[in-house]
Simulated assay, not measured.
Amino acid sequence: MKPETITLAGGCFWCLEAVYEHVDGVLGVESGYSNGHAERPSYEQVCRGDTGHAEVVRVRFDAARITLREVLEIFFAIHDPTTRDRQGHDIGPQYRSGIYWHDAAHEAVAREVWAEANAAHGGRVVTELEPERNYWRAEDYHQHYFANHPQQGYCAAVVAPKVEKFRRTFRSRWRG
């Protein structure tokens, strides 16, 4: 088995990471920054909007247990792909929606699932589709943030409801 990887931006990386860490078939999730212009960006630079990077998660998965299509269906269900540079109260280009692929086969699946989501949302999906470029791993304190800080204010108010929505909506994929 060779793990596959897709990089996803859907607002704050803590939310996406917290969900994908519970998805059956996902082998690992890493928070980072992608598709900007600066080399080795810091969290502070990305938050200021200085780098052009999006907050992302790299999702490593076992394609024999979960398909890329399923990974992307979860992605479109756990964030709002119709708001440009925003998820809830998080506003700025670092919170944009994006799918960043690592190979041509993933590009084809991403475009297909994007088109289906766009149709389902009345043509309003703003999720960008691009190859991953200029990725940089987020600082250690961002890794497994929700698992390590479930009572922190943002986690309790924003992340926990997304995890619960995933658990209810995708019961067969939940790995608790």
Rank of each mutant, 00 (worst) to 15 (best):
M1Y: 12
K2G: 08
P3Y: 12
P3S: 14
I6D: 06
I6N: 07
I6A: 06
G11I: 11
W14I: 09
E17N: 10
E17M: 10
V19P: 07
Y20T: 00
Y20A: 08
E21R: 15
H22Q: 14
V23F: 07
V23R: 04
V23S: 05
G25V: 11
L27H: 03
V29M: 05
Y33C: 05
N35L: 07
A38Q: 07
E44A: 10
E44K: 15
Q45L: 10
C47A: 14
R48F: 00
G49T: 03
T51H: 01
T51A: 12
H53R: 00
E55M: 12
V57W: 07
V57R: 08
F61D: 02
D62N: 13
A63R: 11
R65L: 15
L68V: 12
L68I: 08
R69N: 12
E70A: 15
I74Q: 01
D80A: 10
T82D: 02
R84P: 00
R86W: 09
Q87K: 10
R96P: 00
H102G: 02
A104R: 12
A104I: 00
A108I: 14
A115D: 12
H121F: 15
G123E: 09
R124S: 07
V125S: 00
T127W: 10
E130K: 13
P131F: 07
P131T: 05
E132Q: 13
E132W: 00
R133E: 11
R137D: 11
R137L: 14
A138L: 07
Y145C: 05
P150N: 08
Q151G: 11
A156K: 13
E164M: 09
E164S: 10
F166I: 05
T169V: 02
S172C: 04
W174M: 01
W174I: 13
